[in-house]
C-alpha cells in the first residue's frame, strides 16, 4: 500500500520534475561544464581549459568596477528604498479614505516592464532634451539642469540606482505593509499605556516587529543588485567608459558579444557563488538581530 502511495506521488511530480530537469537542472549542469571550456557559443566543439577562465576572470580589470557598482547599488537601494518603503508602509497602514488607491499608485511602477521603465528614464535623464533638464531649468535650478545624469561616469550608477528605488519601493512597501498588519493592536495599546509616543512606538515596537520583513526585503534587494542587468543594459549598456559595468552586463557581453561563452559562463558561476555566500551571511546576521529583538 505504501509502495502504491509512493508511486502515485511520483506520478504527480513526474511531469514537473521532467520539465525541471530539462529546462533548469540540465542547463545548470551543462553551464558548469562549459565554464571550464573555451566554447564560443555557436561552435559544435569546445576544448577543456581547466581553471583558465576563472584565473582570467580574477585578472579582469572590469571585475573591480562590477564589484564596486554592486556595492553602490546595494547600499543606495537598501538605504533609500527601505527607508521610503517602511515610511510609506507605516503611513498607508492607517484607516484613511482612498488608502487603497494610494497603495495602488505607489505599487504601480512594480508592474511596469523594466525595459519600458529604462527607456522612459533614459528620456527623463537625457541632457538638453530630457524632462529633468527642462524641469530643473524651468524652476531655476540651472546647475542640476546641466547635469549629464547617464553620461557622467561619476553620476551614472547613482542615476540608475534611483530608478531602481523608484521602481521597487512599492514592492518593498507591500511586504512591510503585510508585516505591519500582522502586528497586534494590543501591543500598541500596551505601549500607549506605558507612555510611549508615536516616535517611540515606531522605534521600539513597529521596527523590531518588522525584522522578518526586513530580512526578506533586504535579501531580495541585495540579490537583485548583485545580478543587475536590465536597467543598466537599457540605460547605459555598462557605459560611459565602463563606469556602470555589472556582472550581468559583463556576462552578457562576454557570452554573446565577444563569442566567449565559456568565459561568460565561468563569470556567471562566480556570481552565483557570491550571491549564495552573501545571502547566507545576510540571513544569518539578520536572523541574529531577530532573535535579539
Amino acid at each position: 500500500m505504501k509502495f502504491m502511495n509512493f508511486r502515485n506521488y511520483i506520478m504527480f511530480i513526474l511531469p514537473a520534475l521532467l520539465i525541471y530537469l530539462l529546462f533548469f537542472a540540465g542547463p545548470i549542469f551543462s553551464g558548469l561544464y562549459y565554464g571550464f571550456t573555451d566554447w564560443n557559443g555557436f561552435s559544435f566543439k569546445a576544448d577543456w581549459v581547466g581553471l583558465e577562465n576563472f584565473r582570467e576572470a580574477f585578472r579582469d580589470p572590469l571585475l573591480l568596477t562590477a564589484l564596486k557598482n554592486m556595492l553602490i547599488l546595494s547600499v543606495v537601494v537598501i538605504v533609500l528604498q527601505h527607508s521610503f518603503s517602511i515610511l510609506l508602509a507605516v503611513l498607508l497602514d492607517q484607516k484613511l479614505k482612498g488608502i487603497v488607491w494610494m497603495r495602488a499608485v505607489i505599487f504601480f511602477p512594480v508592474i511596469l516592464n523594466t525595459v519600458v521603465i529604462g527607456y522612459v528614464w533614459s528620456y527623463m535623464y537625457a541632457p538638453m532634451v530630457g524632462f529633468l533638464p527642462k524641469f530643473f531649468d524651468a524652476i531655476g535650478l540651472h546647475g542640476l539642469a546641466a547635469l549629464d545624469w547617464l553620461g557622467d561616469p561619476s553620476l551614472a550608477i547613482y542615476a540608475i540606482a534611483l530608478v531602481m528605488v523608484w521602481q521597487y519601493t512599492g514592492y518593498s512597501m507591500m511586504i512591510y505593509l503585510a508585516g505591519l498588519q500582522s502586528v497586534s493592536g494590543e501591543i500598541y495599546e500596551a505601549a500607549s499605556i506605558d507612555g510611549a509616543g508615536p516616535w517611540n512606538k515606531f522605534w521600539r515596537v513597529t521596527l523590531p516587529l518588522l525584522i522578518p520583513s526586513v530580512i526578506v526585503n533586504t535579501v531580495l534587494s541585495v540579490i537583485g543588485c548583485m545580478k543587475m542587468f536590465e536597467h543598466v543594459f537599457i540605460m547605459t549598456q555598462g557605459g560611459p567608459a565602463n563606469s556602470t559595468q555589472t556582472f550581468g552586463i559583463m556576462i552578457y557581453q562576454y557570452a554573446f558579444k565577444t563569442s566567449q561563452m565559456g568565459y561568460g559562463t565561468a563569470m556567471a558561476m562566480i556570481l552565483s557563488v557570491m550571491i549564495l555566500a552573501v545571502t547566507y551571511v545576510q540571513i544569518k546576521l539578520l536572523s541574529r538581530m531577530e532573535v535579539a529583538n
Binding site: 535623464y125 538638453m128 532634451v129 549629464d148 547617464l150 557622467d152
Partner: peptide
C-alpha cells in the same frame, strides 16, 4: 554635456 545622449537623442 552630450555624452549621455543616445543615437536618436
Amino acid at each position: 554635456n552630450s555624452v549621455g545622449l543616445s543615437y536618436d537623442q
